[in-house]
Design a protein around this nucleic acid. Structure first.
Lengths: 214, 214
DNA sequence: CCGCCCTTGTGTACGATGTCCACATTCGGG
DNA sequence: CCCGAATGTGGACATCGTACACAAGGGCGG
């Protein structure tokens, strides 16, 4: 029950009870403020008040833990998108609504990248984990992954007549490419350090380009 | 003079002569077949036939070495773009030429990403190094960086009347976003494993989108 | 209610890595 | 020719991921 001098919350029960989630939670915090390379096995387990090897009962290796964290971060991307859509002012015009819904997907993506660069990098910068962007573990509160949210928004554009049906196939990759590319430029690239307002404007320009060019 | 049993080329002179470049060269090879995380200080120096600490006479730390490698990789991107432009069939029509020149920039980018994923990731995946994409250390044979090649191609589009002048400012970031985004999807993302022909087609679609939407 | 066993956490240990320090060697300019 | 600056060496250390053997304890059959 007593703390060990440093900040680790010592537990009195031998079993932890919910170590797996505690590890993911601790790793998420580490990743939030340092990106994927900051999620260090020993630091994570220390935070959970447990010896390093305990992690191996729940994850095959550090990569497996990182993967779980990546999925959790992706789920936060989805939630940010959903929040952006939910904050949209109600419109009677279904065409304008479909367009706004689509733009909100991109805007949410940019917003998350700027507000949580560490988590964003953890979600996507990890080689090979982007391939799981459609796994349900990456879903938000609506149960949809960022990729699925994008797909639905594109379907909405088609229904509203804003996107020709023959352009629909593969459109998610065009949109995703442009949005993800800018996000990376904003975080690690030459656009890093842009003021939030400038970044927002840049994001809108990219979305404009997508709408015109898709 | 004699080899030490493993493959390291032992030298007989105490001084190496050109260690700095030898280290970069060795690191480039490591990066080529394993990405940035494969450029391990001890492996690099071993390859150069030198003790690990020798690297510190030429680079402040591993990050500095990695940065130099990143710049060298970026220069290779520039060379691939230049090669793509040089391979263009000659055209009398200057408008078509400007357009082809622009598209070659993107095509070269995609080609490099697919042919040398390790180097590509080293050039851009390293947090913070993308910000130096305009440094001369990243230039190709023509002395131009990938970023500058893109800018010139866009200027060519304006001159040819293919791009309105008021759309020119900031256009490099729109184009770069889309191209870089797809490259990442192709290498690490859900589009990885696409056949070269499919990847090429996807790349052309992205460039189509840029031309329409820029 | 009891004893067994499978799950979960602990302790110790090892090899690899980045980096620091003191020392050895060599080259170039006075 | 000789001395100091530049360059490479050797040894050491903290930290990291991970393997192996062991301890604790909760749940299940009897």
């Amino acid at each position: 029950m007593a703390a060990t001098g440093n900040g680790k919350p010592k537990r009195d029960t031998y079993r932890h009870g919910d170590l797996r989630n505690a590890l993911i939670e601790a790793a998420l915090e580490l990743a939030r403020q340092g990106g994927p390379e900051a999620v260090v096995l020993r630091a994570v387990t220390r935070q959970a008040g447990v010896v390093p090897n305990a992690a191996y009962r729940h994850f095959g290796d550090r990569g497996a833990l990182l993967h779980a964290v990546s999925q959790a971060a992706m789920a936060q991307v989805a939630r940010t998108m959903e929040a952006e859509q939910a904050a949209l002012p109600p419109t009677a015009d279904p065409v304008a609504a479909a367009r706004a819904c689509f733009r909100a997907v991109g805007t949410g993506y940019f917003r998350f990248a700027q507000e949580e660069p560490g988590l964003f990098r953890t979600a996507f910068h990890v080689p090979g984990d982007m391939a799981h962007a459609a796994d349900d573990t990456a879903a938000g509160v609506s149960g949809k992954t960022p990729f699925e949210l994008l797909g639905e928004a594109l379907d909405g554009l088609v229904d509203a007549g804003l996107l020709a049906e023959d352009r629909r196939p593969g459109a998610e990759f065009l949109a995703w490419s442009a949005v993800h590319g800018l996000a990376v430029l904003l975080i690690d690239g030459p656009l890093r350090g842009l003021l939030p307002s400038q970044a927002h404007e840049a994001g809108q320009h990219v979305i404009d380009m997508i709408e015109r060019g898709i």
